[in-house]
C-alpha cells in the first residue's frame, strides 16, 4: 500500500539521507562538478518558519518517495499564495503502481485545503514527468535554461 502524509522534514532527515543519493544519481546533472551536499540547515530553517511543505510517500512505513515545496505569497504577487516545488521523487522500485498519482493527488488536495492558489512544478528534460502534469491539467508556463560558467 502506498500512502502520502504531511510530515516533518527535520524528523525525516536520516531517512532522506538514504534516498536523496538515489535521486541524485538518477536525475542530477553535472555530477562530476556538483556533488550532492544538501543544506539541511536551510531546509530546517524553512520548516521552522512554516514555509517548507514536505509530503512523505510511504509503503509499509518505509519512505518510498517525497514532495518538497516552499509555500509563501509570491515575491511579485503578494496576494497569491504559491507553492513552488523544490524536488519530488518516487523510488524506482515503487513506480508503476500509481505512486506518482497518490503523491500529487495528496499534494494538490492538501495545498488547496491550506489556501494555496498556485502550484508550480517542474521536471527534468532528460527524465520528463511532463506527461503526468499534462494529464493532471497543468499548463507548461516557463522553460529554465542552465549554463555552466566554470570551476
Amino acid at each position: 500500500m502506498i500512502t502520502a502524509h504531511v510530515e516533518s522534514f527535520v524528523a525525516n532527515i536520516e531517512e532522506l539521507k538514504h534516498i536523496i543519493p538515489l535521486h541524485y544519481e538518477e536525475l542530477a546533472l553535472n555530477k562530476d562538478k556538483v556533488p550532492l551536499s544538501p543544506r539541511w540547515d536551510r531546509y530546517a530553517y524553512s520548516e521552522s518558519i512554516g514555509e517548507l511543505f514536505f509530503v512523505a510517500l510511504r509503503d509499509a512505513g518505509e519512505l518510498a518517495g517525497y514532495f518538497i515545496g516552499f509555500v509563501a505569497p509570491g515575491l511579485h504577487y503578494s496576494t497569491c499564495l504559491t507553492c513552488i516545488q523544490d524536488i519530488f521523487y518516487v523510488k524506482p522500485d515503487e513506480r508503476g503502481a500509481a505512486a506518482g498519482k497518490v503523491l500529487f493527488d495528496f499534494v494538490e488536495k492538501e495545498l488547496k485545503r491550506r489556501g494555496v492558489q498556485r502550484l508550480i512544478t517542474n521536471s527534468k528534460n532528460h527524465f520528463p514527468a511532463a506527461w503526468m502534469f499534462d494529464r493532471r491539467g497543468y499548463e507548461p508556463i516557463e522553460t529554465i535554461h542552465s549554463l555552466w560558467l566554470g570551476d
Binding site: T3, H5, E7, A56, R58, G61, L63, K109, R113
Partner: peptide
C-alpha cells in the same frame, strides 16, 4: 505509532 499512520477527519490529516 510510526510514520505511515494517517488519521483523517474530513479533509484534514494528522500524524
Amino acid at each position: 505509532s510510526a510514520p505511515g499512520v494517517d488519521f483523517r477527519c474530513e479533509d484534514e490529516h494528522v500524524y
